[in-house]
């Protein structure tokens, strides 16, 4: 790992039909990091990622990716980046081997035959190499897509919602693979709206409606927001949930089965509230460390408010 960041961008802006899809976006991505992009659907995650790697020309802003200018040296960047799209976008009417071979030819990979064979072995698909890609299951398609975008040994990997529609086991395997790549020094940018995937990331940027709301080291995010949380268990939790939502001090109530996570930004007010509700003894109130999960539910609520404010 070198000290220079893999990506540095400032003021990235992209407009479609007069609407700013991405608005003055600044970010630094350290080399070898797994950087997660979170945000609701249509918040501009994909557009941002593409601009950062020179796949899309921004309307304003500048930056560099892997030491190359994202505005003028896009071709050099492309040679060093692997991009896995949201939808499976290899050729369904080509076989697994043909797909890998085609992508390898696009990147001018040296010693192509061996490289493709090695990729097939890694995938464990060597004996199914002549099967059409379209006949693979969701999980296998995803692994093939990952193998295809790694065929030229890129320094930077872009994953656009890579695990949408993939079963939990395959998802875990996929993330094991991503962490292995990261350990080898590959920088990974991943967009997702799954919380359990966000937890896997070293760094996180939260984007909503084209604006970056927060970014930083993943485990510091809750602290940055300044959220305090109580864990509440007991009888008739639904009625309690409804009552708590009316309270001033409570910024958010998140329900996880029979457990409520009650959060607020004003520590003193929340403590007082907990003491008041805890007195009758029908519910157990415990302080807990605010986690990413609460942080994101909080962010999403806030973003919705921002948007409503902007629209009116």
């Amino acid at each position: 790992m070198t000290d220079a960041p893999a990506i540095t961008v400032t003021g990235l802006t992209k407009r479609y039909g007069g609407r700013a899809v991405v608005d003055h976006f600044d970010l630094q991505v350290p080399r070898g990091a797994i950087y997660g992009f979170l945000g609701p659907n249509g918040s501009g995650k994909t557009t941002t990622i593409r601009m950062m790697c020179g796949l899309l020309t921004p309307d304003a802003g500048k930056g560099s990716c892997l030491g190359f200018d994202i505005l003028t040296e896009q071709a050099r960047i492309k040679e060093r980046v692997g991009y896995m799209t949201q939808k499976f976008s290899l050729y369904e009417d080509l076989t697994i081997r043909e797909n890998l071979d085609f992508i390898a030819r696009m990147f001018g990979v040296r010693d192509r035959r061996n490289r493709v064979r090695a990729a097939l072995d890694d995938l464990g698909l060597a004996d199914r190499a002549t099967q059409y890609a379209g006949t693979l299951s969701g999980g296998w398609k995803q692994r093939l897509a990952l193998a295809a975008c790694m065929i030229h040994d890129p320094e930077l990997l872009l994953l656009d919602e890579p695990t949408a529609g993939v079963d939990p086991k395959a998802r875990r395997d996929f993330w094991d693979e991503i962490r292995k790549l990261s350990a080898r020094g590959v920088t990974v940018l991943v967009s997702t709206h799954y919380m359990d995937e966000a937890i896997q990331c070293d760094f996180i940027a939260y984007i909503a409606y084209g604006k970056k709301l927060i970014s930083g080291v993943a485990r510091e995010i809750p602290e940055m927001i300044g959220l305090y949380t109580y864990r509440v268990t007991g009888n008739d939790i639904s009625a309690l949930e409804a009552r708590l939502r009316q309270e001033e001090a409570v910024a958010q109530v998140a329900r996880f089965g029979a457990v409520l996570h009650v959060s607020g930004t004003d520590k003193a007010a929340l403590d007082a509230l907990a003491a008041r509700y805890g007195k009758d003894g029908s519910h157990r109130w415990e302080r807990k460390e605010a986690e990413l999960e609460e942080a994101f539910i909080y962010l999403m609520g806030g973003a919705a408010d921002n948007f409503a404010g902007a629209a009116s």
Binding site: K78, V81, G82, L90
Partner: peptide, 13 residues
């Protein structure tokens, strides 16, 4: 339509 153009755009082709 099949999205494969996205893959192509990401390669140096």
């Amino acid at each position: 339509e099949r999205g494969t153009m996205e893959t192509l755009i990401a390669t140096p082709v």
